[in-house]
Design a protein around this nucleic acid. Structure first.
Length: 280
DNA sequence: CGCCAGGGTCTCG
DNA sequence: CGAGACCATGGC
């Protein structure tokens, strides 16, 4: 990052762990963090600017930010239990060894939903570029960076200026969903009380949200750790696990749930990262 | 240039 | 219900 972000080198306080920040922030869950030369990361949690760093596998942050950092990076997730529940096949074992310490983070609901509406048929680098453009064009400035704009702000935007952020045909979907949320027709916080199936149905009723995007939001913003987004990468992984036997989306979803276990979303995230890294 | 990317939606059989 | 067309954009 060259925008002059130079976090103060004040002492950081230990939050907990274990965690791998690099893996967590580079695994296609979230797209707006910046890695500094010293290996620490800076970014916004909602509209709060924080610096996080990793020392001996433990997470550190600025004094006063410990609570929100601990929550955002899900330090309460029981990694030992999750790893014990990993499926016992070569691919999953390899993914685990490659990604140990990666955590599924707790993202703000709207920010996560909106970002993944823009993600369809886009590479991770493009999603990041669109996210930064939307933030810069519409979001409130926090110091030297920009937070994600609220539903109300985006609801009052027009489609051409969203397209100017590189969204293409996704602009209309983001605009329409922003309006439904801003109208109060959908309450993203209240939805958190729904059972996973009902929550998935409520999300897929929104413009630009199909099963895959809904599962991303379930996993990254609603703590449903068994939700399995099936994108082209995971599709290939599942195909390989089934020795080439393809199936309908529903069949593959059923297979993934059964095969990947109670923390299927975690397993999926590790498999996703392994597949992407090893293809380069 | 063709191909691919953390897909959704609509149409047609 | 399931397969196909179409939808923009950018990196390689």
């Amino acid at each position: 990052m060259d925008s002059g972000i130079r976090a103060r080198k004040s002492a950081l306080s230990v939050v907990g762990g274990p965690i791998s920040l690099d893996l967590t922030l580079r695994s296609g869950q979230v797209f707006h963090w910046d890695r500094l030369e010293d290996g620490s990361w800076v970014g916004l949690i909602g509209d709060r600017f924080v610096r996080v760093s990793e020392r001996n596998g433990a997470l550190e942050t600025d004094r006063g930010s410990e609570g929100i950092v601990r929550n955002y990076f899900s330090l309460d997730h029981p990694l030992d239990e999750i790893y014990a529940a990993f499926p016992d096949d070569p691919l999953s074992r390899e993914a685990l060894e490659m990604c140990r310490g990666m955590r599924i983070i707790r993202q703000p609901r709207w920010e996560c939903l909106a970002t993944f509406i823009t993600s369809s048929m886009k590479q991770v680098a493009h999603i990041r570029a669109m996210s930064l453009a939307i933030r810069k064009s519409f979001g409130p400035q926090i110091g030297e960076v920009f937070a994600y704009p609220s539903p109300g702000v985006l609801a009052r935007a027009d489609e051409p200026s969203l397209r100017a952020c590189g969204l293409g045909y996704r602009a209309a979907n983001l605009l329409a969903t922003a309006r439904r949320v801003a109208d109060g027709k959908v309450d993203l916080e209240a939805l958190s009380r729904l059972e996973t199936e009902d929550l998935r149905n409520a999300l897929t009723a929104l413009p630009g949200v199909g099963v895959k995007v809904a599962n991303c939001v379930l996993l990254f913003a609603y703590e449903r750790l068994d939700a399995v987004p099936i994108d082209v990468w995971i599709h290939r992984v599942l195909l390989s696990m089934r020795r080439g036997r393809d199936g309908t989306a529903a069949q593959l979803a059923r297979y993934a749930r059964r095969r990947l276990g109670p923390y299927a979303g975690y397993v999926q995230q590790y498999l996703f990262h392994r597949a992407r890294v090893s293809s380069k």
